[in-house]
């Protein structure tokens, strides 16, 4: 089952957030990803996008598209 595009992107971006002790001493300012994504459209017009399920492509796998995304850290003022 493929996830929605935003869920996949969130997981990807959040995986770069330092955790534990590293959070106190490391700050990531810029990240750029370039990765394959399987893309489809749900019947309710949502874009589904997920990482390829396997490195080996079979005849039943979607030919992956490619996504380049760059993010930067910003101060959040509440």
């Amino acid at each position: 089952m493929m996830r929605r595009l935003e869920d996949t992107l969130l997981e990807l971006i959040e995986s770069m957030r330092p955790r534990g002790e590293a959070a106190a001493i490391v700050r990531i300012d810029d990240v750029a990803f370039d990765l394959p994504l399987e893309v489809a459209v749900s019947p309710t017009l949502e874009i589904l996008a997920d990482f390829p399920r396997s490195r080996w492509r079979g005849g039943f796998d979607i030919a992956p598209s490619r996504c380049r995304i760059s993010v930067r850290s910003v101060e959040h003022k509440s």
Partner: peptide, 20 residues
């Protein structure tokens, strides 16, 4: 998600090469 850390990520650019 930034409410607790006061630091968040903002998407700068997104480029999608869609096989279609």
């Amino acid at each position: 998600k930034a409410a607790s850390t006061h630091l968040t990520f903002a998407v700068k650019e997104l480029n999608l090469q869609l096989r279609t």
